[in-house]
Amino acid sequence: MDYIKIFATRGSDLWSAMIEHLIISGTALILGIIVAVPLGIYLVKTKNTWLRSIAFSITNIFQTIPSLALLAILIPLIGIGKFPAIIALFLYSLLPILRNTYSGFKSIDESIIEAARGMGYDGKQRLFRIELPLAIPYLMSGIRLTTIYIISWATLATLIGAGGLGELIYGGLSVYDKPLIFASSITTMILAIVIDFLLGALEKFLTKQTTSREQSA
């Protein structure tokens, strides 16, 4: 019974923690998209192979650092609070988005690019009218995956004082408040599931013209 009641008694705490959680994850994600998508596009277009491998290596390194370690190492560098947490999550988001953007653009049939060039699309028109729409399925799946990661890792961000749902989970753990642990964890899970579902719907909406048609044929 306690497990249900807790949602009523701590409802406003849970709600504000969830909003905080969303802000942290959302900011990190948007930053990640702003940096990784253009970078990914640039890496596809550039003939500079070493630049490409450097970019991938660096983002790869961020991805391999254990999340707790990455959060910890940011404390001496930029202190504690929301900002370092967002930076850490942003660094995590880079690789999956970058890699999916890159493979999304790489997956476009050469002949389509050549046709677009040969028919007289200029660079910008080609990017926005042809390449981007065709790469969207890959891009979206990268973003979707990253979002789920970020939402789960954001629970750790409380360790450097960022707040969010993690704060309630750790708070509950430290005093062994089982209903609170339960409620905050469930909220995190539901948040992840709902966001994933929404992004999935968005992905379907954006890609229904290309992929679904192709599959049906």
Binding site: S111, A115, D122
Partner: peptide, 20 residues
């Protein structure tokens, strides 16, 4: 090049229709 290409029709080997 862009202007020139718009004035010349182009058919490629692999059709290259835009799938979207």
């Amino acid at each position: 090049p862009v202007k020139l290409r718009r004035s010349i029709g182009y058919v490629i080997q692999h059709v290259g229709l835009f799938p979207h």
